[in-house]
Amino acid sequence: MKKIKAGVIVFPGTNCEKDTFDALMECGFNPEYIYANETNLKPFDMIILPGGFSYGDYIHSGRIAKFSPVINSIKNFNGLKIGICNGFQILTEINLLPGALLLNKSSYFISKNQSLIFKNKKISLPVAHREGRFYAPDDILKKIKENNMIFLKYDTNPNGSIDNIAGLVDYKTKTLALMPHPERAVFKNLNNGCDGRLIFEFFKELI
């Protein structure tokens, strides 16, 4: 079977691209790096926005990345669009997903393995963020629930996210994002478990 061609988007300040690339390879994808000025996404079945601090996250997380050529192309890209951590922040900034990611309730940067609920089962994935508190006003939250967009929830809420939301998916636009880092839970020797593989398998289901 032909491998899924996955574009890993790299901005100045992205720092999880190598982990994401390696995890994609391990999970049977065919990854390739794409840089901020790229506009041709035709060769790809999916694109993935990895974690980090795109353009230093000055002004607000994901705000400057929003104006890059590659993001402009993503808006018209019909394949699967994935955001991890900073990628989630970028996808909300460009309104491909609803809501926004704000400073954690505690103000602390959280870095730990986090218990989550995925497909009615408990899983564990690393989280590492300071601006990961998902927020949406009541009317938008209502729509999120009506459209079954919440695919991943925190088991115990680490950051004050509304409704324990850790990940959203929009089946219509084929857009998915999560704050935890599945790419850090693919290789056994990292001691973060291997539940990240379940998330990468979920990406395949969506293509």
């Binding site: 704000l102 400073l103 954690n104 309730k105 505690s106 103000s107 508190r133 927020y135 006003p137 004050g160």
Partner: peptide
């Protein structure tokens, strides 16, 4: 500024 009904942890601190 953040909207008044959005939690502001820096302000609270």
């Amino acid at each position: 500024f953040q909207k008044k009904d959005v939690l502001d942890p820096k302000g609270e601190t």
